[in-house]
Simulated assay, not measured.
Amino acid sequence: MSWLDKVRNSLSSLAKSDTPDTLWMKCPSCGEMLFAKDFEANLSVCTKCEHHGRIGAKTRFDQLLDAGYTVLAAPKVPENPLNFRDTKKYPDRLKAARAANPYPDALTNALGTIEGAKAVLGVQDFKFMGGSMGMAVGEAFVAGVNTAIAENCAYVICTAAGGARMQEGILSLMQMPKTTVATRRLAAAGLPYIVVLTDPTTGGVTASYAMLGDVQIAEPGALIGFAGQRVIQDTIREKLPDGFQRAEYLHAHGMVDMVVHRKDLKGTLAMLLGYLARKEVA
């Protein structure tokens, strides 16, 4: 066999996952070409500009929880209560989203420990229909709170959402007061509620449980707001400041307590849980 045949055989045996299209990626912030494995090893943070990429629920669980955590079952809810259809039927959109994601809806809870401190961790996945808040998200949030109360531990949630889920109309908006009441139940039980705001957290999620934490943490550069920047600018007819609705701007103006790099997030949560954990009365 000639050397050329050997090269051809080697090239033909390459798996699709090893092709140049998947070996490299472009940072959406600085445009740097990054080796995909290096990007993942760096917690999906750009090695040049430290842009924090969006990550899924499974990755977030693995990054923040100690080994041995348990993913909680998703609550059952009516799947198409309004018989909604746009260019596609709502059940078809759900089916497509579930085929592309490991969990059945945008918010998933897991019970475990963060550097030894017990906690229920909820994670919203923006890849699932933009992390939109529907009945399933509301029920999952309440279920996470109930589990935290039953386990006498904190509830920590990583938010990422484009807002309420339009396919569920008013029923999606009803999740705002529902989840707000759930946070009050945590407070009444004397248990910590910590929010980690990730990119992006907007709309009805921001207007409810995302801004009600005992401690508000944000990842660097995260977009956090209610209405879009263009809508606000057109309404008030003024140019908005640089960095408006970004984590650092909100921190400087008292809307969030701290901006924490992803590599420091687990340790920061563990420290806060140690401070906020309810002490048993002797």
Rank of each mutant, 00 (worst) to 15 (best):
Tyr69Lys: 09
Gly138Pro: 02
Met176Val: 15
Ser44Phe: 07
Cys30Val: 02
Lys266Gln: 03
Thr235Arg: 12
Lys239Glu: 14
Met255His: 12
Gly116Tyr: 07
Arg230Ser: 15
Asp5Met: 03
Phe128Arg: 03
Thr159Val: 09
Phe39Pro: 01
Gly31Tyr: 03
Asp214Arg: 10
Gly31Val: 08
Leu223Ala: 11
Lys88His: 12
Asp105Leu: 08
Asp125Leu: 04
Phe84Cys: 13
Met25Thr: 14
Gly131Glu: 08
Val260Ser: 02
His52Ser: 08
Ala164Trp: 02
Ala136Leu: 10
Tyr209Ser: 11
Trp24Cys: 04
Ala187Glu: 15
Phe141Tyr: 03
Lys89Thr: 08
Arg165Pro: 00
Leu43Tyr: 10
Asp242His: 14
Glu139Ser: 12
Ala189Glu: 15
Lys76Leu: 04
Gln63His: 12
Leu65Val: 14
Leu250Gly: 15
Gly221Asn: 05
Lys37Ser: 00
Ala97Asn: 00
Asp66Trp: 10
Ala36His: 08
Tyr249Val: 14
Ala282Gly: 13
Phe244Arg: 12
Gly213Met: 06
Lys118Trp: 01
Ala67Val: 11
Gly130Val: 01
Asn146Phe: 00
Met176Arg: 13
Thr108Ile: 05
Tyr90Val: 10
Ala110Val: 03
Ala36Ile: 04
Ile217Gly: 00
Arg230Met: 12
Lys37Gly: 01
Lys263Gln: 12
Val195Tyr: 11
His261Trp: 11
Arg237Met: 07
Arg60Ala: 15
Leu4Cys: 04
Gly243Gln: 11
Gln167Ala: 05
Met129Ile: 15
Ile232Thr: 09
Glu248Asp: 11
Gln233Trp: 01
Phe226Ser: 11
Leu191Glu: 08
Gly116Leu: 03
Tyr69Ala: 10
Glu139Ala: 14
Gly204Pro: 03
Lys266Asn: 04
Leu223Ile: 07
Gln124Val: 13
Ile194Thr: 05
Glu50Arg: 15
Met176Tyr: 05
Asn101Leu: 02
Gly203Asn: 06
Ala96Glu: 14
Ala57Thr: 15
Ser172Leu: 03
Arg54His: 02
